[in-house]
Design a protein around this nucleic acid. Structure first.
Lengths: 136, 136
DNA sequence: CTTGACCTTCACATCAGTGTTAGCGTTCGA
DNA sequence: TCGAACGCTAACACTGATGTGAAGGTCAAG
């Protein structure tokens, strides 16, 4: 597919897709006319990149770990230097810490919401006055 | 404690602690001479902030959710407007998505590392040559 | 008085992302 | 065939956010 379709299917501005390519996050083959062509997995790949960026990973790291994440376990280790492995392990551990931190705080937030707004958010409904006084 | 001690105990540059205060993430009482004074929980609070920032949450959101995360379930809902609740719910869901994304990719990365480097990372040890040829 | 910790403020670095401009080629439908 | 929509490159600038550096001054203790 061309850039326009990828843009629509991923909800990502064309501009940004070119930017990701510039950053080495995605690849595109080129047609004779110079147009970028993307294969089907590119859709997931872009979404994956967006997710990781949103989770705080810098492009530099994403670029490094992306090749290790392909579904078919294609052998990537020929070019895996010890330093590279070390980097990946550190990033894996950092991701784990992130997950723990997020989970902890998400659960706390969730618990809070359960208290202030038990079951089925009435938020967005017709609320004329804040429940600030003594209720009931 | 003063800023220097908090800095040491959290591994956070003084400059950054002042920045967090400027952004409304932490509070400090002031001594007569203008020095900032922090209480004991500030240590955890700073670490929590660092963790959330690292996980991709912007300061603006952290500032909003932090008060809901205090261990003693102090009643915060007097000032909880419906919009605020909505924001918190959206952020909770976003955190969940982040967790899922991170977990998925962390597991894939982990699996990859298990393949290229099964059990007990020898990385960092004395590795004279990369294991690029057929092993065993 | 010197040293070190603290204060404020301005400026800067980095990074992701965006808008815009200018110039040009391609695709596709009316 | 014409024009709109789409694509390309390259560049420039700029936002918004996190994070730093350094200047210049204050405070407290040896």
């Amino acid at each position: 597919m061309r850039i326009g379709e990828l843009s629509e299917r991923t909800g990502t501005p064309r501009r940004l897709l070119r930017y990701y390519e510039e950053q080495g996050l995605i690849l595109a083959t080129r047609a004779a006319n110079g147009y970028r062509h993307y294969d089907e997995p590119s859709v997931d790949r872009v979404l994956q990149i967006r997710g990781l960026l949103d989770a705080g990973l810098p492009t530099r790291i994403i670029k490094q770990i992306l090749p290790c994440l392909d579904k078919p376990r294609i052998i990537h280790f020929p070019d895996a230097t010890p330093e590279m492995i070390g980097t990946l392990e550190r990033e894996r551990d950092r991701m784990t810490r992130r997950i723990e931190c997020l989970t902890r705080n998400r659960d706390a937030l969730s618990e809070y919401l359960d208290v202030v707004c038990p079951e089925g958010g009435p938020v967005g409904g017709t609320v004329s006055a804040p429940v600030s006084g003594p209720v009931g």
